[in-house]
């Protein structure tokens, strides 16, 4: 089974890798590009731990083939903070609100939340909950996650 050469942009950087056509984008990010921040919790698109942006669109990277990334722009959790290290307000608020316990779902939830705030800077609690319905968290009961997202949204609105 021959591998396919893929060129893409990940977190602003040009990357190249060889993908078996059966490998998902998640496999490629983790195993070929050493970007292990995106997690596999289910492999069926039901948990959201592998959330990334593909050409600006929120997707589960376990439901995208690596070969499909050819020529595309991928954004992962590793690209969320500023290059110099300054955290995105969502990242700050998650720490401040204790919105993570084990932290395994956190990268996916942060990426998904960023996509939400990009299109809806002032979401209601209900909008946050429905937007994040595909991001399972088993530790927190979601309470502090929802609060952190709404607080980060307020922060971003204030900063804008």
């Amino acid at each position: 089974m021959s591998k396919i050469h893929v060129s893409a942009t990940v977190n602003g950087d040009p990357v190249e890798f060889l993908a078996d056509p059966r490998e998902t984008l998640l496999d490629c990010l983790r195993d070929h590009l050493d970007l292990t921040g995106s997690k596999e919790g289910c492999g069926t698109g039901d948990c959201g731990a592998c959330s990334v942006l593909l050409d600006g669109r929120l997707v589960c990277s376990c439901l995208v083939l690596g070969v499909e990334a050819e020529g595309k722009r991928v954004e992962t959790i590793e690209g969320m903070a500023e290059p110099g290290g300054e955290l995105h307000p969502l990242q700050r608020k998650f720490i401040e609100h204790a919105a993570l316990q084990c932290g395994f779902c956190t990268p996916g939830i942060l990426v998904a939340s960023k996509a939400l705030l990009a299109r809806n800077p002032d979401p209601t609690e209900e909008e946050v909950r429905y937007w994040l319905a595909g991001n399972l968290c088993r530790c927190t009961g979601y309470d502090k996650i929802v609060r952190a997202v709404m607080d980060a949204a307020a922060d971003l609105r204030g900063a804008a």
Binding site: G45, S51, L54, C60, A112, L116, W131, G134
Partner: peptide, 9 residues
């Protein structure tokens, strides 16, 4: 059909 993420695809 599916989550926000699934909707993207």
């Amino acid at each position: 059909v599916g989550s926000t993420q699934v909707q993207g695809r």
